[in-house]
Design a protein around this nucleic acid. Structure first.
Lengths: 241, 241
DNA sequence: AAGTGGTCTAGACCACGTA
DNA sequence: ACGTGGTCTAGACCACTTC
């Protein structure tokens, strides 16, 4: 364990120690962490200082607090929080998560753009999955998913049908990899095969390209995802403050 | 002034009182609010309670705190914070705000989609402006801006050349309207005139449509903006947590 | 009834900005 | 030197959950 910077305020050092315990899975998602009083005694600080440390962790989404029950390590779920922003035009304007089908899963030497995005040495082994997502029976999203093979070996061993419709819980359960943060970049492209077929569009039709890079607790890239969305059903909604 | 709910915690009631003073412009953007000690005495609460109230306001972006200087009412600027997410492909990958030219400004009876978005009675008078934005001399954005005429009369009285390149400071200075929050929705459309010409594209080319509804401190709609971005230069980048 | 986090108080000292 | 917000302490009582 790296020594903590003594110049930092107590509550930040305590915060970092707790975050490290979560990052190393010493305290696992879903579990309760020690109570405020226990932490105060263990670290020899006032309970108010513990509260401030935990509060910053709660703001960053690492833990969740429940009055009367305790403080719990949060289980992030970007498979659904992607859909916090992304919307599809269903029969009504509802906020549904489309069903998903994995079409293929391969192991290969990584193309340059993939290894660069995942910050891997050139030609590292990677896993590629193609996935189709449907709403009301219509294809709305074609996903191309890239993973570092070194971290996700168990994915190759599973039957494709065993891989759940939510990928991030699968990563956590079978590979011990937890997604903590992600970045998305949106742009427009002319769709090419195989994505045109997956979306039932003519080649060269315009689609929204949503590139997502997902990171673990230590900031290491875990997954690179390129999703193509059909223009007619695509919406992305966000609040600015 | 509505009476405060006595069931709420002290710090939330204090928070609401301060927020109301900001909303009514009793304390104006850029000004310092009273010190923690003064607020504690004035409201007869402990200084820690004042700190908690102010902290929540700072998290919501209503005020900014500076150690040694004081706490100041924040001046939101969505003209530049739009560009927090929106990126254009310049000569390099830099994060530049494009120059802007106002092409027209009219007063008219509001079309139905506009009055609905701005939550105005049908056929209310509205102001429409068209604006072109250029990066490295190339048009990258065509903006269609709608305002309730009742709130923005001074805009009609100004010469178009007097209207600055940043609209929100102009709204504040000449119309007393401050934008506090906004929502954006992204989608793809086939561009029509006059936006095709403004962007130097062929009609029916695909563009990104960015619809933005901006709200004041009391949550009232202030501006509806529909921006079309050329597909070749458009990028939208966001972090998910 | 016991234990948890939530609110609130009343101080102390520190770090920073301004004059 | 002075005033500001930032950190930290040591308690009290309350609201909620669990047993």
């Amino acid at each position: 364990m790296a020594s903590v910077d003594q110049r930092l305020p107590l509550y930040q050092r305590l915060r970092d120690e707790i975050a490290a315990k979560i990052a190393t899975h010493e305290w696992r998602p879903g579990e309760a962490i020690p109570t405020e009083a226990e932490l105060a005694v263990a670290h020899n600080v006032a309970i108010g200082t513990v509260r401030k440390a935990i509060q910053t962790l709660a703001e960053d989404g690492l833990v969740e607090r429940f009055q009367g029950r305790g403080t719990f390590v949060r289980r992030p779920n970007f498979d659904s929080s992607l859909f916090r922003f992304l919307r599809f035009q269903g029969a009504d304007g509802r906020h549904a998560v489309p069903e998903s089908w994995i079409l293929s899963r391969d192991s290969m030497s990584g193309p340059q753009d993939v290894t660069e995005a995942l910050q891997l040495p050139a030609s590292s082994r990677v896993i590629r999955m193609l996935r189709q997502r449907l709403l009301d029976g219509r294809p709305v999203l074609a996903e191309e998913i890239w993973l570092p093979e070194a971290l996700f070996q168990p994915i190759l061993a599973m039957a494709v049908s065993e891989i759940g419709s939510l990928l991030y819980p699968t990563y956590e359960q079978y590979c011990g990899q937890i997604v903590a943060m992600a970045e998305e970049t949106l742009s427009i492209e002319a769709v090419t095969e195989p994505y045109a077929s997956i979306l039932a569009l003519e080649p060269e039709a315009s689609v929204e390209l949503i590139e997502r890079l997902a990171f673990g607790y230590q900031g290491q890239p875990l997954e690179w995802r390129r999703s193509r969305a059909a223009a007619s059903t695509f919406r992305y909604h966000i609040e600015l403050r």
